[in-house]
Amino acid sequence: MKLAERPTPRLTVVTLGADDMSASLKFYEALGFARRSQAAGEKVAFFETGASVLALYPSAALAAEAAQPSPAPAGFRGVTLAWNCRSHDEVDAVMTLAAMAGAAVLKPAAATHYGGYAGYFADPSGHVWEAVVAPGIEVGDDRRVTIPE
């Protein structure tokens, strides 16, 4: 099959399956993500993140929509989400905020093998996040990340 016009690749929304929507909503709101379009209540949630959107949807319903077995496998799922920071202090602040919001701290922030500084935490449904400052990667005032060529 040949496309007449190649679609422009873009990542616009990351949807996380939430085992407990109420707990997940409280967690992401405590992290400071701005929730939008709240008319759906706890059926679905959308948060502004800068250049994309983070969505929460009940895990079982998300699995059914994607024609996948439910529940999600326990343990590491092969995916991490990154919260890029501007400094070591900001990484530490994110890790502290996440812990205060109820995250499980998986790995305290420390120097990385590539010259960065990072820590890992998990949200109430076990989704793994990295708080990181990495050499050469800049975070703008608009929260967008710039990666060098």
Rank of each mutant, 00 (worst) to 15 (best):
A55D: 06
V145R: 06
A60M: 03
Y57D: 00
G102E: 03
L25H: 03
L54N: 08
A39E: 12
A72N: 11
A72D: 09
D89W: 08
P73T: 05
H127C: 07
Y114Q: 08
G116A: 12
D89I: 05
P148G: 15
G17Q: 05
A64W: 01
L31N: 04
P148T: 11
A118V: 10
H127T: 04
A18W: 00
L3A: 14
D89P: 07
F76K: 09
I137V: 07
F121D: 00
S22E: 14
K107F: 00
A51L: 14
A45C: 11
D19E: 15
N84G: 05
Y117C: 13
A61E: 07
A40R: 13
A30M: 03
A39R: 12
E130R: 15
N84H: 09
P58F: 04
D92N: 15
G78P: 09
F76W: 02
T8A: 13
G17W: 02
F76V: 00
A64D: 00
S22R: 14
C85L: 06
A134W: 03
P58G: 05
A60K: 09
A4G: 03
G50I: 06
Y117G: 12
R10K: 15
A122E: 05
A131M: 10
H88Q: 10
A61V: 03
M95N: 07
R35G: 02
L3G: 10
F33Q: 03
Q68K: 13
L81P: 06
Q68D: 02
Y28S: 06
W129H: 09
T80G: 07
T49P: 05
Y120H: 10
A55S: 14
V14I: 02
H127G: 07
V94D: 02
A30C: 04
D123N: 15
R143W: 03
D19P: 03
V14F: 01
S52N: 14
R10S: 14
R35C: 05
G140D: 06
S59T: 07
V133Q: 11
A39M: 11
V105P: 02
V94K: 15
T80A: 13
D123W: 13
V44P: 06
E29G: 10
F121Y: 01
T112K: 13
E5H: 13
A55M: 15
A66S: 00
G115C: 09
Q68M: 14
A51P: 11
G50V: 08
W83A: 12
L81I: 09
D89Y: 06
Y28Q: 05
M1G: 15
P69M: 09
A55T: 07
Y114P: 01
R35K: 12
H127A: 10
V14S: 04
S87F: 08
L25R: 11
G140Q: 12
A60S: 06
G140T: 02
S125G: 11
A118T: 14
V128S: 02
A72V: 09
I147P: 02
T8C: 08
P7Y: 06
Y114S: 06
C85Q: 02
A93L: 12
T80N: 11
H113Y: 04
V13M: 15
E65P: 00
V79A: 12
E48T: 10
A51M: 14
S24L: 12
G119T: 08
A131N: 10
P135E: 03
A23D: 11
L56K: 04
G32F: 00
A34D: 04
